[in-house]
Design a protein around this nucleic acid. Structure first.
Lengths: 120, 120
DNA sequence: ATAACATATGAACAAATATTCATATGAGCA
DNA sequence: TGCTCATATGAATATTTGTTCATATGTTAT
């Protein structure tokens, strides 16, 4: 009870202050962890993942993506907006249609890394 | 209207059949995409991300992790179960306490890859 | 200006999931 | 055996978030 401000949770007799302190010092800042989580979060939805994977092949208009994935234009558009806000895709307008493409090679790299892990 | 089974969504006059067909052929199988999404999904939560990051430094008991993150033992335990089921962490019992550690280096690799991207 | 079409978007709804609460399990010790 | 502590877990709750629906915006052509 006299050790470093234990949180209300359990008795905390077993807390190892040295380890806790050492780890606390090496934690990356809140911001970095937040952005990191946010990044992975975007890849953690099957609709968004499929959109990104589809764009591996070529840029594509919203309508084509929707057709390909068998989903409504609206659903795809909402997700594209999120992907764009995360700078994972970019948009190019050509007349009435808007073509989306992967923003850069980071996306491919990250997804391929994940694939490596999934394929053991 | 005579092209390949357009989905109810919009008029679909702009659909590009060649592109759609080409992409459709190169899509990875459902299973792979599912597992891939599931993997990223685990990293897409700040509690789990922080748990994993904490374990970068050393193995740690549930109580210490809860103290470190300022969360209840129960919340941490639930997340650890999920992480364990995904084989991202492993558990080792020593008397009353259970120590958790990263299952292998894949976890570090994936997270570091993400960090690279976040840090531009 | 009006019509037609591709895309974007706000609000409502539905589904998924993280956390809490109460309690069970399991281990060490008197 | 009975007690204490660390962890696990089921059920309820609260929150987040993906999709739908209706409609707005922006572009081209007549």
């Amino acid at each position: 009870m006299t050790d470093n401000t234990p949180v209300e949770c359990c008795e905390r007799v077993t807390v190892h202050p040295e380890v806790v302190e050492q780890v606390r010092r090496n934690m990356p800042d809140e911001d970095t962890l937040y952005h990191l989580t946010e990044l992975f979060h975007v890849f953690g939805d099957s609709t968004r993942m499929r959109i990104l994977y589809v764009l591996f092949a070529s840029e594509m208009c919203v309508c084509d993506i929707a057709t390909l994935l068998g989903m409504t234009q609206s659903a795809i558009s909402h997700q594209l907006r999120l992907l764009k806000s995360m700078r994972l895709v970019k948009a190019r307008r050509e007349g009435k249609t808007v073509f989306y493409a992967l923003a850069d090679d980071h996306v491919k790299t990250i997804i391929n890394q994940g694939l490596d892990h999934v394929n053991e």
